[in-house]
Measured scan of single mutants.
Amino acid sequence: NNDALSPAIRRLLAEHNLDASAIKGTGVGGRLTREDVEKHLAKA
């Protein structure tokens, strides 16, 4: 659900052409954090 993404996370996802649903969020309520996105990028 993109409504739960902060603007910074949306921008980071867009810059790397990532789909938020492909990344498991570890923030409050399962929200994506910058660390989640960076860890996903490091794996790729």
Rank of each mutant, 00 (worst) to 15 (best):
Asn1Arg: 07
Asn1Thr: 14
Asn1Gln: 14
Asn1Tyr: 03
Asn1Gly: 14
Asp3Ser: 09
Asp3Thr: 09
Ala4Gln: 14
Ala4His: 14
Ser6Glu: 12
Pro7Met: 11
Pro7Ile: 09
Ala8Glu: 15
Ala8Gly: 08
Ala8Arg: 13
Ile9Thr: 05
Ile9Val: 10
Arg10His: 05
Arg10Lys: 10
Arg11Ser: 08
Arg11Pro: 00
Arg11Gly: 07
Arg11Ile: 07
Leu12Phe: 06
Leu12Asn: 03
Leu12His: 06
Leu12Gln: 07
Leu12Ile: 10
Leu12Thr: 05
Leu13Asp: 00
Ala14Phe: 10
Ala14Val: 07
Ala14Leu: 09
Glu15Trp: 15
Glu15Phe: 15
Glu15Asn: 09
Glu15Gly: 07
Glu15His: 14
His16Tyr: 11
His16Pro: 00
His16Val: 03
Asn17Ala: 07
Asn17Met: 08
Leu18Ile: 15
Leu18Gly: 01
Asp19Ile: 10
Asp19Lys: 10
Asp19Trp: 05
Ala20Glu: 09
Ala20Gln: 08
Ala20Trp: 08
Ser21Glu: 08
Ser21Gln: 09
Ser21Phe: 08
Ser21Tyr: 06
Ala22Asn: 11
Ala22Ile: 10
Ala22Cys: 05
Ile23Arg: 00
Ile23Val: 08
Ile23Asp: 00
Ile23Pro: 00
Ile23Glu: 00
Lys24Met: 12
Lys24Gly: 06
Gly25His: 06
Gly25Met: 03
Gly25Ile: 04
Thr26Glu: 02
Thr26Cys: 02
Thr26Val: 03
Thr26Leu: 04
Thr26Phe: 02
Gly27Cys: 01
Val28Pro: 15
Val28Lys: 11
Val28Asp: 09
Gly29Asn: 13
Gly29Pro: 02
Gly30Trp: 00
Arg31His: 07
Arg31Met: 14
Arg31Glu: 08
Arg31Gly: 06
Leu32Lys: 01
Thr33Lys: 05
Thr33Ala: 02
Thr33Phe: 01
Arg34Asp: 08
Glu35Lys: 13
Glu35Phe: 13
Glu35Leu: 12
Asp36Ala: 02
Asp36Tyr: 01
Asp36Trp: 02
Asp36Arg: 01
Asp36Thr: 01
Glu38Gln: 10
Glu38Arg: 11
Glu38Trp: 15
Glu38Phe: 15
Lys39Met: 12
Lys39Asp: 09
Leu41Lys: 01
Leu41Tyr: 04
Ala42Met: 13
Ala42Ser: 11
Ala42Thr: 09
Lys43Met: 14
Lys43Asp: 10
Lys43Gln: 14
Ala44Glu: 11
Ala44Met: 15
Ala44Asn: 13
Ala44His: 14
